[in-house]
């Protein structure tokens, strides 16, 4: 049931009925994700002073690395915006270029996060140490797992874009992926503020 490609006024991703349904469905999924991360933040809020015999946040956070992670992820969100912009322009080449850059930035973030986890284990802040380390690593890990999923998903979409070009169906997929990626950025802003900055105060 895909309608013909028209340039304006309806963006390509909204041109098929199923595409519209998918986008709304995904927004509702994001609502569930908000409840999910809100629960994790609440758990962290309760457990973060309970360090038992383990280290506290201020003792293990490496703020320089966290700032690099933040810059990588925030920039990737900006380039993810450019992906959608290129899609609206109808340029597969521009879309794929910015998509690859976005995923590289996301990959860089993930690399830094894995390094961060190794660092925590080395300084004696593994998952099994205290309620604080359990909730810290679970919250960060859940976000990291989402980023990993987003990277694999993004690679699948790049392949489909190269195979099929910009159609209402592929466009709605990329748009949905974009919502997901920006959402992960928003979650990271909360993590940065409440976990890292809050932990260092």
């Amino acid at each position: 049931m895909e309608s013909k490609l028209v340039k304006y006024p309806v963006p390509t991703e909204y041109q098929s009925e199923q595409g519209k349904l998918n986008i709304l469905g995904f927004w509702i999924f994001i609502a569930a994700e908000i409840a999910l991360f809100a629960t994790l933040f609440a758990v962290y809020g309760v457990l973060h002073p309970r360090t038992a015999n383990g280290p506290s946040g201020a003792e293990i956070f490496v703020i320089k690395d966290v700032v690099i992670q933040t810059l990588l992820l925030l920039t990737s969100s900006f380039t993810a915006g450019l992906v959608i912009h290129q899609m609206r322009q109808g340029s597969v080449k521009g879309l794929v270029t910015w998509f690859v850059i976005t995923l590289l930035l996301g990959g860089g973030f993930l690399f830094m996060e894995i390094r961060e986890f190794i660092h925590y284990v080395e300084v004696g802040a593994a998952l099994q140490v205290s309620a604080f380390t359990s909730s810290l690593l679970t919250t960060l890990g859940t976000h990291g797992a989402h980023v990993t999923l987003g990277l694999i998903w993004g690679i699948c979409l790049i392949i489909q874009m190269l195979q099929r070009g910009i159609t209402p169906k592929t466009a709605s997929k990329v748009h949905i992926w974009g919502i997901y990626w920006h959402f992960l950025d928003v979650v990271w802003i909360f993590i940065f503020t409440f976990i890292y900055v809050g932990g260092l105060i």
Binding site: A32, E33, A35, L36, T39, L40, V43, V46, L47, R50, T51, A52, N53, G54, L127, Q128, V129, S130, A131, F132, T133, S134, S135, T138, T142
Partner: peptide
């Protein structure tokens, strides 16, 4: 349901991976 998703995740981490969300020791609650 996402609240329970997290509760079950934390419970599984406690039981299977040795985390300390709900244990008596190591600050769990």
């Amino acid at each position: 349901f996402p609240i329970f998703t997290i509760a079950l995740l934390l419970g599984a981490l406690d039981r299977i991976y040795g985390a300390h969300f709900f244990t008596v020791s190591a600050g769990g609650l």
